[in-house]
């Protein structure tokens, strides 16, 4: 991992990413986004989805985030259980999430998506669950209906981006090298290589992995986790972290059901244990079954997201107008 900018030595678009060019990613960590996520915690029952980055530990400490790291002398402040002794040591209060750097980049990505009206979807699954196949079928079905782009994450090769580009959609491949997940900083870089996507949909296909990507907010609006029918009914129980963060779970390769001894209801039970709020849809990119429901979900969520953005913009315009007339 690069200790200058924090990126994991990833390459974007197959070329080595250069660290020396001052790409202005010091966007101040956008700490106010932690408040957004507090909301998600307080009302996990209120809406079908739940926010994503709240797993990162920033919540509940919002009051501390705005202060510069405080300097606490022994005996003067909350030195807690630490005995100061006679050494020249002092306490530095930090109170920030370990992944706050990633969360800052994610907030910047989210702000950018909000500004451009982009509906961003983070697609996660184990390797081979069918993320790329689903995307190819999705892009083909959308057939230019909205501006779309894809960010592909893999440890090596640009095979997936090439499959996406074959549909006519712009795609950027991020090779994470040793990395096991995409982070928000990589996604921010990848966005620079994509055309403007105003009002469109960005699909981010994460590195195939049911563990690590769960903790890394990319700035997406929704998380979609794929579980292929061949993977076993208890995957959500074995890898709860990733399924717990899903807004939508797609049970893929549904066309294989007649050939498998899969207890489909057991998958629902396992998902309900881990994430009672997630929507679950069965889909087969191969046969096309379930594609309409998946596309319908996309359309409805995109509409809701853009409608919310429009309402915010109108409220802002109204506030500005009354400031002018007042």
């Amino acid at each position: 991992m690069c200790t200058v900018c924090g990126c994991s030595g990833a390459t974007v678009g197959g070329e080595d990413h250069q660290h020396g060019h001052g790409h202005g990613h010091d966007h101040g960590h956008g700490h106010d986004h932690t408040h957004d996520h507090d909301h998600g915690h307080d009302h996990p029952h209120g809406h079908g989805g739940h926010s994503h980055s709240h797993d990162h530990g920033d919540h509940g400490h919002g009051d501390h985030h705005h202060a510069a790291p405080g300097l606490l002398d022994y005996g003067a402040g909350p030195a807690r259980a630490h005995a100061p002794g006679l050494t020249q040591t002092r306490m530095i209060e930090i109170e920030r999430g370990i992944l706050s750097k990633n969360d800052g980049y994610a907030a910047a990505n989210r702000a950018r998506f909000g500004r451009d009206g982009v509906f961003a979807v983070n697609l996660l699954s184990s390797p081979g669950a069918g993320k790329t196949t689903l995307l190819v079928a999705t892009l083909t079905a959308l057939a230019g209906r909205w501006p779309v782009a894809v960010i592909e994450g893999d440890q090596q090769t640009s095979n997936d981006a090439e499959r996406i580009r074959a549909t006519g959609a712009p795609a950027v491949q991020i090779n994470t090298g040793k990395g096991c997940h995409l982070d928000a900083h990589m996604v921010g870089h990848a966005l620079e290589s994509l055309p403007a996507l105003d009002g469109g949909v960005l699909f981010v296909e994460n590195v195939g992995n049911l563990v690590c990507p769960a903790a890394f907010d990319l700035g997406e609006a929704k998380r979609v986790v794929l579980l292929s029918l061949t993977e076993g009914e208890d995957k959500p129980l074995k890898y709860p972290d990733i399924f717990a963060t899903a807004d939508l779970v797609l049970v893929t390769k549904a066309d294989l059901a007649p050939h498998l001894d899969v207890d489909r209801a057991a998958i629902d039970r396992a998902l309900a244990r881990v994430n009672p709020a997630a929507t679950v849809l069965d889909v087969s990119a191969r046969s096309g079954d379930g594609m309409a429901a998946w596309l319908g979900w996309l359309e409805a969520e995109r509409r809701a997201a853009l409608t919310a953005l429009a309402a915010q913009a109108e409220a802002r315009a109204s506030a500005l107008r009354s400031a002018v007339s007042g």
Binding site: H56, G57, D58, H59, G60, H61, L72, H82, T89, R90, M91, I92, E93, I94, E95, R96, G97, I98, L99, A215
Partner: peptide, 8 residues
């Protein structure tokens, strides 16, 4: 949570 509380 995954929070850095403080440093000595």
């Amino acid at each position: 949570e995954m929070t850095i509380k403080d440093l000595e």
